[in-house]
Protein backbone atom coordinates (compact mmCIF):
# COMPACT_ATOMS: atom_id res chain seq x y z
CA UNK A 1 0.00 0.00 0.00
CA UNK A 2 1.26 3.43 -0.86
CA UNK A 3 2.16 5.45 2.19
CA UNK A 4 -0.12 8.43 2.69
CA UNK A 5 2.87 10.35 4.03
CA UNK A 6 4.95 9.54 0.98
CA UNK A 7 2.29 10.55 -1.48
CA UNK A 8 0.93 13.63 0.23
CA UNK A 9 4.30 14.38 1.83
CA UNK A 10 7.84 14.42 0.62
CA UNK A 11 7.34 11.85 -2.12
CA UNK A 12 4.89 13.99 -4.03
CA UNK A 13 7.12 17.00 -4.36
CA UNK A 14 4.99 18.46 -7.06
CA UNK A 15 2.03 18.58 -4.71
CA UNK A 16 3.88 19.33 -1.49
CA UNK A 17 5.54 22.26 -3.07
CA UNK A 18 2.21 23.71 -3.98
CA UNK A 19 1.20 23.27 -0.36
CA UNK A 20 4.23 25.18 0.81
CA UNK A 21 3.64 28.12 -1.42
CA UNK A 22 -0.04 28.32 -2.17
CA UNK A 23 -1.43 28.13 -5.65
CA UNK A 24 1.43 28.57 -8.04
CA UNK A 25 -0.03 29.64 -11.33
CA UNK A 26 3.23 30.69 -12.96
CA UNK A 27 5.11 28.21 -15.05
CA UNK A 28 7.56 26.25 -12.91
CA UNK A 29 7.01 28.54 -9.96
CA UNK A 30 6.48 25.37 -7.97
CA UNK A 31 10.14 24.55 -8.39
CA UNK A 32 11.21 27.91 -7.01
CA UNK A 33 8.99 27.28 -4.01
CA UNK A 34 10.50 23.82 -3.64
CA UNK A 35 14.00 25.24 -3.40
CA UNK A 36 12.88 27.85 -0.91
CA UNK A 37 11.65 25.19 1.52
CA UNK A 38 14.61 22.90 0.99
CA UNK A 39 12.92 20.35 -1.22
CA UNK A 40 14.51 19.03 -4.35
CA UNK A 41 12.46 20.00 -7.37
CA UNK A 42 11.52 17.39 -9.93
CA UNK A 43 14.32 16.57 -12.29
CA UNK A 44 12.22 17.56 -15.27
CA UNK A 45 9.51 19.93 -14.14
CA UNK A 46 6.41 19.78 -16.26
CA UNK A 47 4.51 22.99 -16.84
CA UNK A 48 1.28 21.16 -17.64
CA UNK A 49 1.29 19.60 -14.16
CA UNK A 50 1.69 23.04 -12.61
CA UNK A 51 -1.36 24.18 -14.53
CA UNK A 52 -3.35 21.09 -13.53
CA UNK A 53 -2.60 21.63 -9.85
CA UNK A 54 -3.55 25.29 -9.98
CA UNK A 55 -6.83 24.52 -11.77
CA UNK A 56 -7.73 21.68 -9.43
CA UNK A 57 -6.88 23.77 -6.36
CA UNK A 58 -9.03 26.62 -7.60
CA UNK A 59 -12.00 24.35 -8.30
CA UNK A 60 -11.71 22.47 -5.02
CA UNK A 61 -11.56 25.79 -3.22
CA UNK A 62 -14.81 26.87 -4.87
CA UNK A 63 -16.38 23.55 -3.82
CA UNK A 64 -15.24 24.07 -0.23
CA UNK A 65 -16.74 27.55 -0.38
CA UNK A 66 -20.06 26.04 -1.39
CA UNK A 67 -20.03 23.63 1.56
CA UNK A 68 -19.27 26.45 3.97
CA UNK A 69 -21.93 28.70 2.42
CA UNK A 70 -24.58 26.00 2.79
CA UNK A 71 -23.65 25.46 6.43
CA UNK A 72 -23.83 29.23 7.00
CA UNK A 73 -27.25 29.45 5.37
CA UNK A 74 -28.75 26.28 6.87
CA UNK A 75 -27.69 25.72 10.45
CA UNK A 76 -29.63 22.44 10.56
CA UNK A 77 -27.16 20.99 8.04
CA UNK A 78 -24.06 21.97 10.02
CA UNK A 79 -23.73 18.61 11.76
CA UNK A 80 -24.31 16.55 8.65
CA UNK A 81 -21.98 18.61 6.47
CA UNK A 82 -19.22 19.06 9.07
CA UNK A 83 -17.21 16.04 7.90
CA UNK A 84 -17.44 17.24 4.31
CA UNK A 85 -15.92 20.58 5.21
CA UNK A 86 -13.01 18.71 6.81
CA UNK A 87 -12.60 16.50 3.75
CA UNK A 88 -12.70 19.56 1.50
CA UNK A 89 -10.06 21.31 3.56
CA UNK A 90 -7.76 18.27 3.36
CA UNK A 91 -8.17 18.10 -0.41
CA UNK A 92 -7.53 21.81 -0.90
CA UNK A 93 -4.47 21.60 1.34
CA UNK A 94 -3.02 18.70 -0.64
CA UNK A 95 -3.22 20.82 -3.76
CA UNK A 96 -1.70 23.84 -2.09
CA UNK A 97 -4.91 25.81 -2.31
CA UNK A 98 -5.58 28.87 -0.25
CA UNK A 99 -7.32 28.63 3.13
CA UNK A 100 -9.43 31.59 2.05
CA UNK A 101 -12.50 30.41 0.26
CA UNK A 102 -13.87 32.56 -2.54
CA UNK A 103 -16.90 34.80 -2.19
CA UNK A 104 -20.05 33.08 -0.95
CA UNK A 105 -21.99 31.44 -3.78
CA UNK A 106 -25.77 31.49 -4.05
CA UNK A 107 -27.40 28.86 -1.84
CA UNK A 108 -30.99 27.63 -2.30
CA UNK A 109 -33.35 28.60 0.51
CA UNK A 110 -34.67 25.04 0.62
CA UNK A 111 -32.15 22.81 2.45
CA UNK A 112 -32.94 19.77 0.32
CA UNK A 113 -32.31 21.75 -2.86
CA UNK A 114 -29.09 23.15 -1.42
CA UNK A 115 -27.88 19.65 -0.59
CA UNK A 116 -28.91 18.45 -4.04
CA UNK A 117 -26.84 21.20 -5.64
CA UNK A 118 -23.88 20.20 -3.50
CA UNK A 119 -24.21 16.54 -4.51
CA UNK A 120 -24.20 17.63 -8.16
CA UNK A 121 -21.13 19.82 -7.55
CA UNK A 122 -19.30 16.87 -5.96
CA UNK A 123 -20.14 14.66 -8.91
CA UNK A 124 -18.88 17.28 -11.35
CA UNK A 125 -15.67 17.72 -9.35
CA UNK A 126 -15.15 13.95 -9.17
CA UNK A 127 -15.32 13.67 -12.95
CA UNK A 128 -13.03 16.67 -13.39
CA UNK A 129 -10.36 15.25 -11.06
CA UNK A 130 -10.55 11.88 -12.85
CA UNK A 131 -9.89 13.65 -16.15
CA UNK A 132 -7.06 15.61 -14.55
CA UNK A 133 -5.55 12.36 -13.28
CA UNK A 134 -5.49 11.09 -16.85
CA UNK A 135 -3.62 14.19 -17.98
CA UNK A 136 -1.05 14.33 -15.19
CA UNK A 137 2.53 13.59 -16.15
CA UNK A 138 3.79 12.98 -12.63
CA UNK A 139 2.69 9.53 -11.40
CA UNK A 140 2.33 10.87 -7.86
CA UNK A 141 0.13 13.72 -9.01
CA UNK A 142 -1.97 11.26 -11.01
CA UNK A 143 -2.47 9.20 -7.85
CA UNK A 144 -3.42 12.20 -5.73
CA UNK A 145 -5.98 13.36 -8.31
CA UNK A 146 -7.34 9.86 -8.90
CA UNK A 147 -7.75 9.27 -5.18
CA UNK A 148 -9.36 12.68 -4.78
CA UNK A 149 -11.79 11.84 -7.57
CA UNK A 150 -12.84 8.69 -5.71
CA UNK A 151 -13.25 10.66 -2.48
CA UNK A 152 -15.43 13.21 -4.24
CA UNK A 153 -17.59 10.41 -5.64
CA UNK A 154 -18.03 9.14 -2.07
CA UNK A 155 -19.01 12.63 -0.96
CA UNK A 156 -21.49 13.00 -3.84
CA UNK A 157 -23.24 9.80 -2.87
CA UNK A 158 -23.24 10.45 0.88
CA UNK A 159 -24.35 14.07 0.59
CA UNK A 160 -27.12 12.98 -1.78
CA UNK A 161 -28.39 10.67 0.96
CA UNK A 162 -28.79 13.67 3.31
CA UNK A 163 -31.70 14.98 1.26
Amino acid sequence: MISRRALLGSGAAVVVVAGAGGIAAGTHRLDDVARSVGLKPRAEPVASDDTLIAKAAREQNVLLGLVEAIVARHATLAGGLGPFAQIGQAQVKALGGSDKVPGAPDVASDPARAVGALATAYDTASKARAKDAGRAVSPDLARVLSSMSAGLAQSAQTVGDLR
Partner: peptide
Protein backbone atom coordinates in the same frame (compact mmCIF):
# COMPACT_ATOMS: atom_id res chain seq x y z
CA UNK B 1 -14.02 0.36 -4.72
CA UNK B 2 -14.42 3.65 -2.83
CA UNK B 3 -18.18 3.57 -3.37
CA UNK B 4 -18.28 -0.09 -2.37
CA UNK B 5 -16.72 0.86 0.95
CA UNK B 6 -19.78 3.05 1.55
CA UNK B 7 -22.07 0.12 0.76
CA UNK B 8 -20.51 -1.76 3.66
CA UNK B 9 -20.83 1.11 6.12
CA UNK B 10 -17.70 3.08 5.31
CA UNK B 11 -17.59 6.85 5.55
CA UNK B 12 -16.36 9.24 2.88
CA UNK B 13 -12.70 10.20 3.03
CA UNK B 14 -10.52 12.75 1.29
CA UNK B 15 -8.20 10.20 -0.27
CA UNK B 16 -9.55 6.65 -0.71
CA UNK B 17 -6.81 4.15 -1.44
CA UNK B 18 -4.38 5.86 0.90
CA UNK B 19 -4.04 4.60 4.44
Amino acid sequence: AALAELTWGGRPSAFPGLP
